[in-house]
């Protein structure tokens, strides 16, 4: 609920300005980001576990990162 309230407040604050200046692209971008943010927030608040976007990155990078760590560690010892 709180999330939706915040989202509506943001929309009320921003949308009239954008309409006035006829900013179509701005509006599309704005609604996309806002929609994304409020969906994630709502899900998060309601206890739905969201897969951490970092885990993907971690899968790619941890070999490199750990490799470097080990490199330093081994040489150091």
């Amino acid at each position: 609920m709180g999330v939706l309230l915040v989202a509506t407040l943001i929309s009320i604050y921003e949308i009239p300005k954008m309409k006035k200046q006829n900013m179509k692209r701005d509006f599309i971008l704005f609604s996309c980001v806002l929609f994304l943010a409020s969906t994630i927030a709502t899900l998060h608040v309601n206890g739905v576990t969201i897969s951490n976007p970092i885990s993907g990155l971690r899968a790619i990078f941890s070999p490199i990162g750990l490799g470097i760590e080990n490199f330093f560690m081994e040489k150091g010892q």
């Binding site: 915040v6 943001i10 900013m23 509006f27 971008l29 704005f30 980001v33 806002l34 943010a37 409020s38």
Partner: peptide
């Protein structure tokens, strides 16, 4: 305009 939504995100 996108500062608020992105900040929220």
């Amino acid at each position: 305009p996108i500062t608020l939504p992105l900040g929220m995100l």
